[in-house]
Amino acid sequence: MKVRVDPDKCQGHNRCYSLAPELFDVDDYGYATAAGDGTVPAELVGKAKLAAANCPEFAVIIDDEG
């Protein structure tokens, strides 16, 4: 599983970062990106789904294949 942030939708609510700091980075302006290449380790799959389900802008995207 991989996670990414749609930069056109992200408004910097930082819900993703506070729920799953392991999976997201936040820049000086509060906008989020996936940490590293976005690969979600098995033990963080739940947190990745939680981040996606709490982003008010629907900006957290989960790619399930692989």
Partner: peptide, 15 residues
Amino acid sequence: RAHNRHVAFGIGIHR
């Protein structure tokens, strides 16, 4: 509550 896409801080460009 695990799923909470609330908009208390607004939504869109004025977040």
